[in-house]
């Protein structure tokens, strides 16, 4: 009874916090929400020129979609990556930015992380809609795959929430987590097949006489599986390989459960530490 009322109340509070995030993000900027689309567009332009024109990375042909465009190949991986990276960055700041609230009012603190994730999810969905419109306009039959796409977004949201919860609370106790993550995110970006296809990663390589299974290690990273899943659906128009899909799903669930458990454990003294 109490928990049901509390649940409803929390849902409403979460919705309000998401609105606050969205409203305040581009307040007093001339372009307003336009910025949330302009950012990925600029990234696509830059990476497109550098990797396709200068470095001549050849995009694989979409199978069975038949798509052959580096820009589309890039966007299909870049948008999921951006969602992950943006939530990570926002979570690192959200507890400290709301220190005043945490010290003065009670509400489940998870909602703060949930609210920035929610706000970025809205932006992400808008980006995906734009991408789908573009794909349809170039003749891709992406529309039937939208339910699968949404399922992937849900799984990915669990993953980023888990990471966000864990990092947000760690950053309160150790303020260098934030600076450390700036490095980690840069490294992760290039260790995920966003600007290049997985096929460029060698299966194995001999280092100092030892045979290293490079591709195997590479694919241990759940984010690699995440990008592969999205690209399979959006670019290739097929269901992702079951192993990859399962790996992504399970790691997302583990991440979420672990992140939430860590958060609940460490948020006991949050009001004293922020």
């Amino acid at each position: 009874m109490t928990s049901l009322a509390e649940y409803r109340r929390n849902r409403e509070l979460a919705a309000n916090l998401v609105l606050r995030e969205l409203r305040s993000r581009y307040k007093r900027t001339a372009l307003g929400y336009g910025w949330s689309l302009l950012n990925p567009l600029a990234a696509v332009a830059i990476y497109g020129v550098v990797f396709s024109v200068f470095l001549k990375v050849a995009p694989p042909v979409g199978d069975p979609s038949g798509l052959d465009s580096f820009v589309l190949f890039l966007v299909c991986g870049l948008l999921p990556w951006n969602y992950f990276a943006n939530v990570t960055n926002a979570s690192l700041d959200v507890l400290l930015a709301n220190a005043n609230l945490i010290r003065k009012v009670y509400f489940p603190r998870e909602l703060l992380v949930a609210s920035v994730t929610g706000a970025l999810l809205v932006t992400y969905l808008v980006e995906l809609v734009v991408l789908v419109v573009i794909l349809v306009s170039v003749g891709s039959m992406v529309l039937p795959w939208i339910p699968v796409l949404l399922l992937l977004v849900v799984i990915q949201t669990l993953l980023v929430l888990g990471v966000g919860l864990a990092l947000s609370v760690c950053n309160v106790y150790f303020r260098d987590v934030k600076h450390f993550m700036a490095l980690v995110l840069m490294a992760l970006f290039y260790s995920v097949p966003v600007v290049y296809p997985v096929s460029l990663v060698p299966k194995e390589r001999t280092v100092l006489g030892v045979e290293v299974p490079v591709r195997f290690l590479y694919e241990l990273n759940p984010l690699v599986r995440m990008v592969e899943c999205f690209r399979a659906v959006l670019y290739d128009l097929r269901f992702p390989p079951l192993g990859t899909f399962a790996y992504f799903t399970v790691s997302a669930l583990v991440c979420f459960a672990g992140g939430l458990a860590l958060f609940r454990r460490l948020d006991r003294r949050l009001a004293e530490e922020v």
């Binding site: 609105l19 606050r20 010290r103 003065k104 009012v105």
Partner: peptide, 27 residues
């Protein structure tokens, strides 16, 4: 709890938006 008034007001948002936000925080 009236521990601090206007805790959680967002400076860039209008009074109206803050009333709704603060109200939600207070339940």
């Amino acid at each position: 709890a009236l521990l601090e008034l206007g805790a959680g007001f967002h400076p860039e948002l209008s009074g109206r938006e803050n009333v709704y936000l603060n109200g939600a925080i207070l339940g």
